[in-house]
Design a protein around this nucleic acid. Sequence first.
DNA 1: TTTGTAATTGAAAACGATTTTCATTTAGAA
DNA 2: TTCTAAATGAAAATCGTTTTCAATTACAAA
Lengths: 150, 150
Amino acid sequence: MPNATPFQTGLRQHRRKLTRGRQVILDIITQATRHLTPAEIYRQARDKYPQLGLTTVYRTLDLLVELGYAQRVHLEESCHSYLIATRAHGHHLVCSTCGRAEEFAECDVNALVRLLESRTGYAIDAHMIELMGKCPNCQTKLRAHNARKK
Amino acid sequence: MPNATPFQTGLRQHRRKLTRGRQVILDIITQATRHLTPAEIYRQARDKYPQLGLTTVYRTLDLLVELGYAQRVHLEESCHSYLIATRAHGHHLVCSTCGRAEEFAECDVNALVRLLESRTGYAIDAHMIELMGKCPNCQTKLRAHNARKK
DNA sequence: TTTGTAATTGAAAACGATTTTCATTTAGAA
DNA sequence: TTCTAAATGAAAATCGTTTTCAATTACAAA
Ligand SMILES: [Mn+2]
Ligand SMILES: [Mn+2]
Ligand SMILES: [Zn+2]
Ligand SMILES: [Zn+2]
């Protein structure tokens, strides 16, 4: 099997199949210079492959992320949770198990901002920094749970 | 008018009214140690104020964010756009006008992570960093547009 | 206190994004 | 070529959010 693409190889390793829809979708996000929503990808994909279903677009994007061929971008709008505001400029450290959150103000992005502005020409005016982990409580519970299981 | 709360004062300054629903919602997120979705807030609020509508919860949260009494947290799940993955560990600088994105790998969070781990006891295992700004193209267009308007 | 009015409300419907279901098709190993 | 697990598309269900609208309410002004 000569000339297998990395995508073909990756799929085979995970016992997944290469289909026309998957190839078309990967091609689209490969060529894009901007982030695309599932609906946008669906519209573009149907030009090349009209019978493609939107469901398959969602499933394929999940697969591409899982296999590392695509990544998600988080945008400002929609799908939020809310926390009381205690500082003007706050970022959060959120427990991925229970949702508990600690606020922090330290964020030293100036050096990074300057570097990227000169590299890309963008005028950077905002940033989003969030850290995820396990809170002390959840760590304790998890340890107890693991001990019991042993 | 003695003893006005900061919330009452803030509302009056913006010519908004203090209602029972608004007070209940602010109380809930004030007492919470975790982030809460609109649906979660709605459920809790109805214990204290059964006739409250979910619509009002959404409207109130927008208001609280606008006035600076609440802030939004972005979570891992739902509401994404997608980009091709070109690096194992990539963050993005996204143009807020056209959506164009540049990937970058520099992210120096180790010092921050250590500081916060010792301060909070969390075991930090992930982070989300995204920068927003205007790409060179959009800056040019914007400048041209402003010049024409003058 | 009463009045006037803009702000606010809740119910219902509309909306948009995402997921589930299920019968059918298909990629690719054997 | 055969066989089967994987994948598919259409439709319906589900979920979060917004819009609409007539009724209510907070509160400034009289
Ligand atoms: Mn910051
Ligand atoms: Mn990083
Ligand atoms: Zn926790
Ligand atoms: Zn742009």
